[in-house]
Design a protein around this nucleic acid. Structure first.
Lengths: 345, 345
DNA sequence: ATGCTTTGGTTAAACGTTTAACCCATAATC
DNA sequence: GATTATGGGTTAAACGTTTAACCAAAGCAT
C-alpha cells in the first residue's frame, strides 16, 4: 500500500491538489468551509502525511535546525560527555519541537566543513556551541541562514548570540570567596582563548581582586583544559606544594570537582583546608560529596532561549536587522565547599 | 548569487544533467575519464553542493537517522540529563557521520506520534532508546523502515536490537558483593517493567543469591525510578532503620550515587558500614568520592554499534532477514565502594 | 444592463534531482 | 559485410509539493 500523496487526497476529495495544498498551509479565503471538511476527511481516511522533502524543495525551508557541538581533541567523542552540553541540547530540542522544528545534531570535523551539511539539507538556521577557528565563522556566514552562537564573544553583528555575563560571573565567584575571608585565591581554568567565555571569567576574577585591594599574581592561575583531569592535577599540586592559598575558583564545575578530589586524595579537606567554588552548576555538583558551591546558570533555559531566538529570526526574516543578544541571569549557589575563614572559632 | 544547481554544472561542463548525476552517484561505465574531470572542475568552480531534499524526493532515501530518547515524566526535559544517554548519542552521531548520515534527535510526545516525523522526513531508519507503550512499537512497525531498539527486550523479530546481557550484569554485580562476604544485599532500582533492562538485572540478582544459597527477601528490594533522588531516599532509609543489610546493588550508577550520599548524610560510611555497587559506569562514577565500584558497559561503543547495525540494515535492504542482535560485553570495575567483610581485621 | 469585486476554486510551471529508455559511433565477432 | 556489443552519452518523465496566474459565478452598486 503506497503512501498517500497530495494527489490521492485531492482525487478522493474531488478537488485539485492546489486546493489541498491551500488547506494544508492554512491559506485564508481560498477555500470554503465545506471543502475544508471534505479534505480533512480525505486526509484522515487515506492516512495522508505530508512529505517534507518535497516541501523543502519548493519552499527552500526545511523546518530543520542544525545544532553543532565541539568534539573532543582526539575526535573520538562529541563533547556531550560534558553534562553542560547535554542539558543545553535538551532545552533546544524541546523548544524546537514545540515550535514545529526538528534538530540535526552534529559534531564538526576538521576537514569537511559544516557548510556542506547546512546547504545540502536546506537547514533553516543553526545553533553553534563552543568556539572554533575564525575560518569556520566565515564559512558559516556564507550560508546565509540565521545563526545563533552560544557562549561566544565573536564580534560580528551577523550572528545572534545567547550567553551569560561571564565577566560578572567570574566576578561573582571571586567576590563570594573574598567575602568569606579569602585573600589568596587560585584560578584553575581551561584555556583562556580570545573571545571565549573563559577569558571573561578571568577578567571578572581580576576585577574582584582589584576591587578588594588584593594583589593579582599570575602564578596563581593554572590554565589548561576544561577537564576533570586538569582539576585533579592542580588539586594535588596545590595541596602538596605549600603556598598560602586558601581558596580556588575553578571556571567550570568539572574542573572544580577534579580539584577537590585531588586535594582529598592528598590528605586535605574541603572546605576545612581549602574552599572551592565552581561555575555552571551541572547536575553532578549537587550530588557530589561535598556538594559544590558554584555559579548557577540555567542551562536548559539557555538552550530554549537559543532555539526561540533562532526560530524568531528565521520566521521574521529579520536577517539584516541588528543582531539581538540574550543574556541569562546568574546566581551563586552556596553549598558545602566554601568556608568562611574570617570567623575564628 | 543563486546557489548552483546540477543544471548549472551541466551547462558549464557542456554535458547533460544526467551525465553530471551519474558522476555524482559514481555510476560505473557511463562516463569517460575526460568528462569526469571536466565535471569535477565545473563543480569546483561553481561551488556546487548537492541538494538533499531533491535527492530524497526521488530516491526516497534521506541519509537521515532518527534517534529518539525518553522524556522526563513532566515532559520538561529530555532524559539527556542522564549521562548514559548523552554518551550513547555521541557514539551514534560519530559513527553515523562517518558513514555519511546525519541524525535527527527527538524526544517523543504522548500525543503526536513519532510516525509522522519519520514519514515526513523520509527517515531511513531509527534508533529507539528506552521503552515505551506497546502502541508505540506497533506504529513504528508501520513506517516500514529498519529500527534498532537499544536496551529493550521487546519480543518482535521485526526490530534490530543492541544491548547487553542485563541478567548477567545483575548476576555479576551481586556475585561480586557475595564474593566480598556480603550475605544480606538490598536491591535499589528503577521500575521493574516487563521487558525492560531492569527486570533482567533483577533476575540476575536473584540468580546470584540462589546460587550462593542465600535467601531472597522481597523486602530487600526498593523499586522506584532511575534517579538520584530515589537513591538518596533509600540510602537514608537504610542507614536509619536498622536491618542487617551490609551491601546494596543499585541498578544504575545514578541511583548508587544517591544511596551513598544518603548514607553519608546520615552518618554512615561507605564502604566501611555499607558496600555499594552500581551499574553502567557513567563518567561521574569515577569522579565521585568515594569512586564507585560498578558494572561497566562501553556506552559510546554501544551507540556506535547501534548506528552501524542500523545503517547496515538500511543499505542491504535486509529488512525481511532474521533480526540480528548485538550484545556488548560487561566488566566489573572495582573502585572504592565495596569492602571485603569476610576478612576480619 | 454594465462593470467591479469577492469567493472559491483550477491549471500548470517550478523546485533540483535521478534514472529508464533511447541513441549513435566505433569496435569486435562471425 | 552484416550483425552485435560496448562505451559514452542524451532526453524526458517522475518524485510530491507550492504558488502565481487565471477563471467563472455570484453579488453588488450604479
Amino acid at each position: 500500500m503506497r503512501k498517500a500523496t497530495i494527489k490521492d487526497v485531492a482525487k478522493h476529495a474531488g478537488v485539485s491538489t492546489a486546493t489541498v495544498s491551500y488547506v494544508l498551509n492554512g491559506v485564508e479565503g481560498k477555500v470554503s468551509q465545506e471543502t475544508v471538511e471534505k479534505i480533512y476527511k480525505a486526509i484522515k481516511e487515506l492516512n495522508y502525511i505530508q512529505n517534507f522533502s518535497a516541501v523543502s524543495l519548493v519552499k527552500k525551508k526545511s523546518r530543520l535546525l542544525g545544532v553543532i557541538i565541539p568534539q573532543t581533541e582526539d575526535c573520538k567523542q562529541l563533547l556531550l560527555e560534558n553534562p553542560f552540553y547535554s542539558e543545553m541540547i535538551s532545552g533546544i530540542e524541546l523548544k524546537a519541537r514545540e515550535m514545529g522544528y526538528h534538530i540535526i545534531l552534529s559534531g564538526v570535523d576538521k576537514g569537511q566543513s559544516y557548510l556542506d551539511v547546512s546547504v545540502q539539507r536546506d537547514l533553516d538556521g543553526a545553533i553553534i556551541m563552543g568556539i572554533y577557528q575564525e575560518r569556520f565563522y566565515e564559512e558559516l556566514k556564507n550560508v546565509k541562514i540565521p545563526i545563533v552562537l552560544v557562549d561566544s564573544y565573536i564580534h560580528d553583528k551577523y550572528f545572534y548570540k545567547v550567553g551569560i555575563d561571564d565577566e560578572f560571573g567570574g566576578y561573582l565567584a571571586t567576590r563570594h570567596l573574598i567575602r568569606n575571608g579569602h585573600k589568596k585565591i587560585a584560578l584553575v581554568t581551561g584555556s583562556i582563548r580570545k573571545d571565549g567565555v573563559v577569558e571573561k571569567r578571568f577578567l571578572g576574577y581580576k576585577k574582584a581582586l582589584r576591587e578588594a585591594g588584593l594583589f593579582y599574581n599570575p602564578d596563581d592561575v593554572f590554565e589548561n583544559s576544561v577537564t576533570y583531569q586538569h582539576g585533579l592535577k592542580i588539586g594535588r599540586f596545590l595541596s602538596e606544594t605549600p603556598r598560602n592559598i586558601t581558596a580556588v575558583f575553578a571556571t567550570a564545575d568539572l574542573i572544580a570537582l577534579g580539584v577537590i578530589r585531588g586535594m582529598i586524595e592528598t590528605g586535605k579537606r574541603v572546605p576545612e583546608d581549602y574552599s572551592v567554588i565552581g561555575f555552571d552548576d551541572i547536575p553532578i555538583s549537587r550530588i557530589f560529596i561535598p556538594s559544590l558551591t558554584t555559579i548557577k546558570q540555567d542551562i536548559g533555559d539557555k538552550g530554549a532561549k537559543a532555539a526561540a531566538l533562532l526560530i524568531q529570526a528565521i520566521e521574521e526574516k529579520t536577517l539584516s536587522e541588528p543582531t539581538r543578544e540574550v543574556l541569562l541571569t546568574l546566581d551563586v549557589i552556596e553549598r558545602q565547599t566554601v568556608k568562611n575563614i574570617s570567623i575564628k572559632d
